[in-house]
């Protein structure tokens, strides 16, 4: 049982790392059009993006589909 839980956690973290890295690199700017991001700021945003990756992915996809 604990092996299954640990594997699920590892999968969640792996998906979070990939999504988080992509979001802070190219996605975050869509949500702050009049702002720029310094490199350290992108690094600071990464844990939040990785942690909340399902919601981040949902919002990101919705923002892309709303674009003209």
């Amino acid at each position: 049982m604990s092996t299954v839980l640990l594997a699920a956690l590892a999968l969640y973290v792996a998906a979070g790392v990939v999504t988080g890295a992509a979001f802070v690199t190219v996605g975050a700017a869509r949500f702050a059009h009049h702002m720029t991001f310094t490199l350290p700021a992108r690094l600071v945003l990464f844990p939040g993006a990785a942690l909340l990756w399902p919601y981040v992915l949902y919002r990101w996809r919705r923002a892309r589909s709303d674009e003209p």
Partner: peptide
Amino acid sequence: MLTMAATSHDFWLGF
């Protein structure tokens, strides 16, 4: 606490 720390930047308030 991790969730709070990770979303403590102003960006997350707007997002």
